[in-house]
Amino acid sequence: MDIVRRTIERYVTLTEAEWSAIAPCWREYAFGRGSEVCAVGEVEQRFYIVKSGVQRLSFPHDGRDICVGFAYDGSWCGEYASFLTRKPARFDVVALTDSVLVGIEHDDLQKLYVEQPVMERFGRLILEELLVGRAMREIEQLSLSAEERFDRLVKRSPQLLQLVPQKDIASYLRMTPETFSRARKRR
């Protein structure tokens, strides 16, 4: 549970009373390598914080998986849009390594938002962060060259290069595996 408190406290400070109301709503879930955290068409039941392991967010297109993001220790995981809207997921979330995720059910989070004002603030702050992140990525995708996109990734998340299969990173950067391999060799 430490990971949950630490992660929430990156955004807001919790009193002991607040934490004792929040903690029981979270539970650990195990996902073996290759298993689905959420699949296209399912409704995402939980919002997760990653305790260990790496997960991939992707969607199937033309018989291939297009990778749009990764989650690892201390970051968010799950199909957030489906979790919020209660509509079928558009993305697959797959555990790339054995993963332990700490999750909260939709109803429990909504209840916390109502009963604990500090959690509503937390919810707003993570949404802001997710929104800014999306905007940045959109700009990078549309304006940078393949090489520049690779450089940004290496600077921002160097650990990914070791944790994730190269074909997934190539797909994430919208490169062919060949272009990715050339970009990597130039470093």
Binding site: Y29, A30, F31, G32, R33, G34, S35, E36, V37, A95
Partner: peptide
Amino acid sequence: DPGRQQGASHAS
């Protein structure tokens, strides 16, 4: 063999 199929999780 779950290792060669879709993997296993809590949902299993």
